[in-house]
Nucleic acid binder design. Structure first.
Lengths: 340, 340
DNA sequence: CTGAAAGCGCTTACAG
DNA sequence: CTGAAAGCGCTTACAG
C-alpha cells in the first residue's frame, strides 16, 4: 500500500502553500485559474483525496446522513419487510443525488438506540424508519427531540409530539381500499391489522376503513377486526381466526401486503376462492403484490417519492429552514384479487 | 440546541486531565476504577459522545465499511433487483453485529466511481455488489487493486485478477437446476440468460447447465440459449423469442428469478401451462419466488450467510490477515413450477 | 489572489 | 495510574 499523500505534499509539488491547495481543491473562487488547474492535476496524479475526518472535524459537518431502520425484536432476523427494503433503496438514491453519504443502521426497538450518529458528528441528521412497536420507542423519540437532533421519520403523524414526518395518507388509503370493496358489492368486510397506538399507520388505515363503511351506511362490526402486525405469518394467523370464527365475511382489507399474502395462504388452505368467494385488498404495493395468485389489488405507497421527500425535508431542516410534515397521497392499484 | 460538550468539559468537571477522560471512556485498563466510574457518569449526564471525526482522524481508522452497489445505468431507476436488496439487508445486519457502521452508496457502472471512501478515510474497506456489466467495470477493479484498497466483492471468481470474492457456486447451481429438470424427464431445456463475460455469474450457471446436459447424454443445443440480463423484462423478451422461434422445448432454466418471472408472463400470454407443458426453474430464491403462480422452483443463494462472509472476510483483510475467496453452496428449493 | 497561523477534538507516546 | 504535550490533516479567519 502506498503512502497516503496530504495537502502538504501537493503544496510542496505545486510550489504553493497548503492553504492554497485546500482552496483550489474545493473550487474556491479565491484562487487563480492556472494555479487551480495545476494543483488539481497534481492531486489527481497522486490520487490524493481530502481526508474527510480532518475536513469534517474542522468544518463541523459531515455531509452524511444516517438511516435508522428499527425492527421488532420478535422478528426472526431473516426477513425485512420488502416495503422497507424498497424505502431503503429509494433513500439511498435520493441521498446520492444530493451528494450526501448514507449510513445505514439496524436498531432493535428494545435495546438502547445506537442513535448517536449526530452527537458523534458522524452524520448531520437522521432518518427514522421503523416497523416495531410505536409505543416502545416513543420515549426515544422524545429524547432525540430534547437533544435537538435533526431527524425526520417515516410514518403516521403523532399528536402531542412536534415530530417532523413524511408519511402516507393512511386514513385516505384505508378509505379507498374499503370504498373499492363496497363498490364491488361487498358488505361484510373484515379488517386484518392492529388498530391501536402500537401501530399508528395501521390504526389510521382502520379509521379510514370504518369511516368509509359508515359513510356507506354499513355498521362497523368489531368482530371483523383482527390483530396482526407486519408479517405474513401474522396475516395467516389472523385470517385463520377469522375463518374459524364463523362470522360471515365476503371481503378482507389487509393492513399491509404481507398480511394479505398470509391471508391468501389461509384462504387457500380452506379452499376459499379469491375473489369469487372472498375479495381481498392489501396495502403498500410491494413487488410481490403483482405475483401473488391472484395478483393483489392494493393501495400503493410511493416509495420513490417518499425517499426523496424524507431526504429533502431532512436537508432543509439541517440547513435551518422551517420544515413541516408531509402526507403522500395513496393510490389504489387494481389487479385481480377483488374481481375484474 | 445545546452546546456540544467535549472531553475537556468532562475533565474539568471530574477534576482530572483530558487524557484520563479519553482513557476512561475507551475502557483503558490504565485508569482507576473509581475515576472511570465518575468520568462515565459525568459523560452520561452531559450526553457526551466522542467526536468520531476527531478520534478517527487521530487513530486513522473509522470502524466503518462502505457498500458499493453498482447497477446498470440502463435500468430505469425505480427497481433494484430484490436479490441485491436482500443482500444489502444481510450485510447491514452483519456489520452492526461486528460493531461497524455501514455506508451505502449506489454507483452507475458508467460514470467515475465515487469509490474513494477508503482514500478519504471515511471507511476502512469496501464491499462491492453489482449487477452491471462486468466488462465495464473490470478496469475499475484493477484500479482499486492498484491502490491497495481493501475490498471484497460478491460474485463469480475471475481468472487473471487477484480479487477476493465471496460468491455462490454458480456452476454447481447450474448443474443442479438442470439435473432436476432432467430427472423429471425433460430433454429440450432452454437456458434464458447471457452466457458471456459480461455477466460471469450467468455464464457459470450456463456452463454448469451444459455440463449436466452432457453428462446425461443430452446434446447441448445453442439455439436454446437466449440472451437476458437481470430483469423481468429481459426474461419476458427472451421467453417470447424462444416461444416464437419454433424450436421445441419442454423446460426452461432461468439464470435468475426475475428472468423466470418474466418467462412466466410470456408463457401465460401464450397459454402455455406451467409445469404441464413447460417446466421452469429459477435462480436466487428471492421472496417473490414463493408467490408466483405456480410457486417457483429455484436455486437458493444464502444471502444471510453471504452477508456474514462478505463482512467477516473484509474485516480479516483489513486487519492484515491472509484471506481467500469463498464459494457458498447453492441449494435447490423445490416448489411447483417443475411439477410435483 | 496568496500565505502564515490557529484550531477543530480527539489519541497516544512520553515522563512521572 | 495520571498529566502535559504533540499531532492527526484539514478549513478558515486574518493580514497582505
Amino acid at each position: 500500500m502506498k503512502e497516503k499523500s496530504t495537502s502538504f505534499d501537493i503544496a510542496y509539488r505545486a510550489g504553493v502553500s497548503q492553504s492554497t491547495v485546500s482552496r483550489a481543491l474545493r473550487d474556491s473562487p479565491l484562487v487563480n485559474e492556472a494555479t487551480r488547474a495545476k494543483i488539481q492535476a497534481i492531486a489527481k496524479e497522486l490520487n490524493y483525496k481530502v481526508d474527510k475526518n480532518a475536513s469534517n472535524l474542522r468544518s463541523q459537518h459531515s455531509d452524511t446522513i444516517a438511516l435508522l431502520l428499527f425492527e421488532d425484536p420478535t422478528d426472526d432476523d431473516s426477513a425485512i419487510n420488502p416495503f422497507f427494503l424498497s424505502m431503503l433503496g429509494s433513500i439511498t438514491r435520493a441521498c446520492s443525488q444530493k451528494g450526501y453519504d448514507l449510513l445505514v443502521s439496524f436498531q432493535q426497538s428494545s435495546d438502547d438506540w445506537h442513535a448517536d450518529f449526530e452527537d458523534s458528528n458522524k452524520a448531520d441528521g437522521l432518518i427514522l424508519l421503523g416497523y416495531g412497536d410505536y409505543v416502545d420507542y416513543e420515549e426515544k423519540l422524545v429524547k432525540l427531540l430534547d437533544q435537538g437532533t435533526h431527524f425526520v421519520r417515516w410514518g403516521a403523524e403523532v399528536k402531542n409530539l412536534p415530530l417532523i414526518s413524511v408519511g402516507c395518507d393512511n386514513y385516505q388509503g384505508g378509505k379507498e381500499m374499503t370504498e373499492h370493496l363496497i363498490n364491488k358489492g361487498h358488505k361484510n368486510i373484515a379488517f386484518l391489522g392492529s388498530a391501536s397506538m402500537h401501530a399508528p399507520e395501521f390504526f389510521e388505515r382502520y379509521k379510514g376503513h370504518c369511516e368509509s363503511l359508515t359513510t356507506n351506511g354499513i355498521v362497523v362490526n368489531p368482530q371483523l377486526q383482527y390483530h396482526a402486525l407486519y408479517t405474513e405469518e401474522a396475516g395467516y394467523q389472523a385470517a385463520t381466526q377469522l375463518i374459524s370464527s364463523g362470522e360471515p365475511f365476503d371481503a378482507i382489507c389487509a393492513a399491509c401486503d404481507l398480511i394479505a399474502i398470509g391471508a391468501i395462504r389461509a384462504l387457500q388452505e380452506h379452499n376459499i376462492e379469491i375473489p369469487a368467494q372472498v375479495a381481498l385488498v392489501g396495502f403498500d404495493d410491494i413487488a410481490i403484490a403483482s405475483f401473488t395468485f391472484p395478483p393483489l389489488t392494493t393501495v400503493k405507497q410511493d416509495t420513490q417519492l417518499a425517499g426523496e421527500l424524507l431526504v429533502s425535508t431532512l436537508l432543509s431542516m439541517i440547513s435551518g429552514e422551517e420544515v413541516r410534515t408531509t402526507l403522500i397521497p395513496p393510490e389504489l392499484v387494481v389487479r385481480k384479487s377483488c374481481g375484474s
